[in-house]
Design a protein around this nucleic acid. Structure first.
Lengths: 349, 349
DNA sequence: ATTAGCACTCCAATTAGATGAGTGCTAACA
DNA sequence: TGTTAGCACTCATCTAATTGGAGTGCTAAT
């Protein structure tokens, strides 16, 4: 549709306006464009074209007799073209990051940090959602008379533990039996494969200890789903102060608040409403954002995968005039690396 | 010393000035004090006294012909008196918080949050330092051929795990033996009790598996000390926007940065230089702060204990005109609860 | 279709008063 | 001797008026 209403010259001018605005953050006038582009057109001509572009809704004037700035529609046009263009290459950088992959947690923290440093925007990364991730290992151990420790290891060496209280001590034999039972039946299963039938079967086999099994299972489920909703690592939130249009006290405070609160970030990152292609990079511009405190921002998100199921999400929040090109590149690169890193289960330590 | 250079009337006036400034955040003038206090003195007299107080360094004028605001020395005087006065009572509130004590981590997050909500300042809490904390339980398990999972449980149910790579698979028997060895020798020991002699002894007993033992021990040490330095939970950092004197773009950005970076917070919270009494509440006012970005803030910290050794620290950062009284009360109350909660090892779930 | 020229608009920065809270000092008073 | 009233003075803050300049829209000429 854009192709029909914009001729080539308008596209060029629009791009020039946006690029210039991305750099300066100031409204851009006709004279600037007249020189900035290689079109060799006078400012007057540019003015006419700009007037058209404004009518079409791609740019707006903050006030009469100011330059133009891109509207959300303008940004959208720019981004769409950009992504279409860039969808081939996935560069390899930041390899160094992989060294420090001791734990999922520190890995993700690092990812957020690297991304924030590279882009100078605020970033966030969700921990892989364990849905459709596979169990690798389960172990119960008696810590003392009344406490049992359950350790669950998932693919990708995500380890979770939980302490369960029991009424009376479990003897060694029972412990062994339960461990055997759990491992033989559950190993290699994805979470959503643990259904009621399986649970019933397990309980039967546990005999008089069925109650313990159910407690354990409950705790396993709990262990896994627990506060997965809350596992978001953020970094570079204070970068927003680098952009005057976001750093007035009220806006900055609200923004930083949502970054600290994290809950709404989870919702944002797990938002599947808009995007058709699950696997692609999502861009929310201004009002497109599902979070009201980010109406003046743009958000770029992408999901990374592990094994078969969809896993986690990385996201970047910045001003609308963010350097989409750089951001998309960075996210793609990181996404690629995470995919690779997490699928390769041999790698760990 | 303060007693010698300040007579009772000056103290009253100084207190009045500080209290008023705590409320308003505006420089306070002589007329205000003249009415505010029950001294029945004219503004002129107050002016004379204020002039004296300024000479003595307790208050300063932001500029000629403005009211006075407390200097760091003034705050210090106020705080010293305050704490001396309040050192008896430890109130009990926020009992509800205890319910959610599933894990140390979420507990501490909650502590930070509660404190931030109650005080409206920025707060931070360090995880208990495991030095001189006792080992309760160790378990090694083979996850697959090349990976061994080590789980370490400390007093207070702090659980840490780590995956160790091994060259060749360990058979069940060896595993059992190693577990036995580790648990019989190490359980109940504090970290600093695991010395070279003990390690040598363990290795000897492990026979041909001494290398594995040393790997495991290394990993245990690593597991425990790992990034304990980095375990700081913060909350309410954005509260600083509530205080105009801190919320100009530059200051706010720097402050929030140190809160995000966390590393310097660790140093701050583990700073033992100033305070004589380890167990008391520490107050840093303005320049007394070891962190340069907090020169315009005041910081209140306190340590909480578990078992025998010193444990973690809680801290509050706010404007110099913070409500010291409320803050101290809150910290004391929380400190008391944490002490109680963590010492009582029966409680868990 | 493009361009030069010009009047017009409006933001942003500057300046000039005006305001008022607060001080320091002096002189009078109890 | 300590306290108070009075007064001149300072200085941040607020308001309004002034200005400069960037940028536009329109028109007429090329």
């Amino acid at each position: 549709m854009a192709d029909t209403e914009l001729d080539e010259r308008k596209v060029k001018i629009l791009n020039a306006i946006i690029k210039n605005y991305l750099e300066t953050g100031e409204p851009v006038g006709s004279r600037t464009i007249s020189k900035y582009t290689d079109l060799n057109l006078s400012s007057a001509t540019i003015r006419n074209e700009m007037s058209d572009l404004e009518d079409l809704g791609y740019i707006v004037q903050p006030h009469t007799s100011a330059g133009r700035i891109p509207s959300d529609k303008g940004y959208r046009f720019y981004v769409n073209n950009l992504i279409a263009e860039k969808d081939k290459e996935v560069s390899d950088m930041q390899e160094w990051m992989i060294e420090k992959t001791e734990k999922m947690e520190s890995l993700l923290k690092n990812v957020a940090k690297v991304l924030a440093t590279n882009t100078q925007y605020a970033t966030m990364v969700t921990a892989p959602s364990v849905v459709s991730n596979r169990l690798k290992f389960i172990q119960l151990s008696a810590v003392d008379e009344k406490q049992v420790l359950s350790v669950v290891v998932m693919d990708g060496n995500i380890v979770k533990n939980k302490i369960i209280n029991v009424d009376k001590p479990l003897d060694n034999e029972t412990m062994l039996k339960l461990n055997m039972l759990l491992n033989t039946n559950l190993n290699g299963l994805a979470i959503d494969q643990i259904n009621l039938a399986l649970i019933t079967k397990l309980k039967e086999q546990a005999g008089i200890h069925d109650e313990i099994i159910s407690q354990v299972l409950e705790s396993v489920a709990e262990t896994i789903t627990e506060d997965d909703d809350l596992q978001v690592y953020t970094s570079g939130a204070t970068n927003i102060f680098k952009y005057p249009e976001l750093s007035d006290s009220k806006k900055a405070s609200e923004l930083l608040d949502t970054f600290e609160e994290k809950q709404s970030l989870v919702e944002l990152l797990s938002d599947k409403s808009a995007g058709a292609d699950e696997n692609a990079i999502q861009v929310y511009i201004g009002d497109e954002s599902p979070i009201s405190t980010m109406k003046d921002c743009s958000i770029v998100t992408a999901t990374y995968e592990l094994g078969d199921g969809v896993k986690g999400t990385i996201g970047i929040v910045g001003p609308k005039r963010m350097d989409y090109e750089n951001v998309v590149d960075n996210i793609k690169s990181l996404k690629g690396q995470l995919d690779k890193l997490l699928k390769n289960e041999g790698k760990d330590s």
